[in-house]
């Protein structure tokens, strides 16, 4: 099979000239790696560089990181609250937490994204709805963060619950017996121990947030996948555009894994084995 395809990695180095204080060196750098002639390397000189594609990629990556990290903050805090709620004695609290988990875990993320973006603002009280639709800056970004955070919180909640339930009841008794309140037992014993146990599944969940953040492009968030697709549409260099996206996602994933490994090693409880990732 032969494929007619003009590889041109240089489009990915296109930048806006005014963004580039060291314009000459950048052009040279582009020129050395690009097609002969090197004239097409700046924004206004060649058809190939009709847009600052490199800036698009950088900005897309930036938004992916921002959206995923903000969503993760929601995930870990809300997931902890819900997970803890599933382990307490009050049946009412447990039922609410269980309902949350079942709803958010079982509705496809894409559907949730649309519901948050198109439906929820209509359901809000009039003033709040108007504020979200008209005045909230970057509504699609906020929506994506909240949606991703709450979706993944349902998974994190299950992990936190499993972590807590894996701790023998004797630990709770030992804490209570010294006069700690139940809240203190969670705060100082059950949660610190269970977080350490569930670091591997939490890691894969954090990576999941990065990957799932691409769904946000459906409501107009210009994150990495959206920018790659836009570059593909502008340049027809689809392979380059999506290869870059792939490599960047893998790099982010690698960084997350590495950081979490370090964290895991730092806080490891001597003599214990963490739960397998999933």
């Amino acid at each position: 099979m032969e494929m007619k395809y003009n590889w041109d990695w240089s489009v990915l180095l296109c930048r806006l000239p005014e963004d580039d204080p060291t314009g000459t060196s950048e052009t040279t750098f582009g020129g050395t790696t690009a097609t002969a002639g090197g004239a097409a390397q700046t924004f206004d000189t060649g058809a190939d560089c009709a847009q600052p594609y490199l800036d698009w990629i950088v900005s897309g990556l930036g938004w992916t990181v921002v959206v995923a990290c903000c969503a993760w903050v929601i995930t870990i805090s809300l997931g902890s609250v819900i997970g803890v709620s599933r382990t307490v004695n009050q049946p009412m609290v447990r039922a609410i937490a269980t309902t949350y988990v079942e709803i958010f875990r079982n509705i496809p993320l894409l559907v949730q994204m649309f519901i948050w973006f198109f439906v929820v603002p209509e359901l809000l009280p009039e003033d709040a709805g108007r504020w979200v639709k008209r005045e909230l800056p970057l509504p699609e970004y906020w929506t994506a963060i909240v949606c991703l955070g709450m979706y993944h919180a349902s998974r994190t909640a299950e992990q936190v619950r499993a972590g807590i339930e894996s701790i023998p009841l004797g630990q709770t008794h030992a804490g209570l017996a010294t006069g700690l309140t139940r809240v203190q037992v969670y705060r100082y014993i059950l949660l610190p121990v269970s977080y350490r146990i569930i670091i591997p599944p939490l890691t894969s969940d954090f990576m999941g947030i990065f990957k799932n953040s691409s769904v946000a492009l459906t409501i107009g968030v210009m994150e990495l996948t959206a920018q790659s697709r836009q570059i593909a549409e502008y340049t027809f260099n689809i392979f380059e555009a999506f290869t870059v996206a792939t490599v960047l996602y893998m790099m982010v994933t690698l960084i997350v894994v590495t950081v979490m490994r370090v964290v895991e090693a730092k806080v490891r409880i001597p003599g214990t084995i963490a739960m397998g990732g999933g």
């Binding site: 006069g179 806080v267 409880i269 001597p270 214990t272």
Partner: peptide, 20 residues
């Protein structure tokens, strides 16, 4: 109860030291 328990020491079969 927390106050009362804080005045009564308890020792368990499996020690129940906090591992972290």
């Amino acid at each position: 109860l927390p106050k009362l328990r804080s005045q009564i020491g308890m020792v368990f079969q499996n020690f129940e030291l906090f591992p972290h």
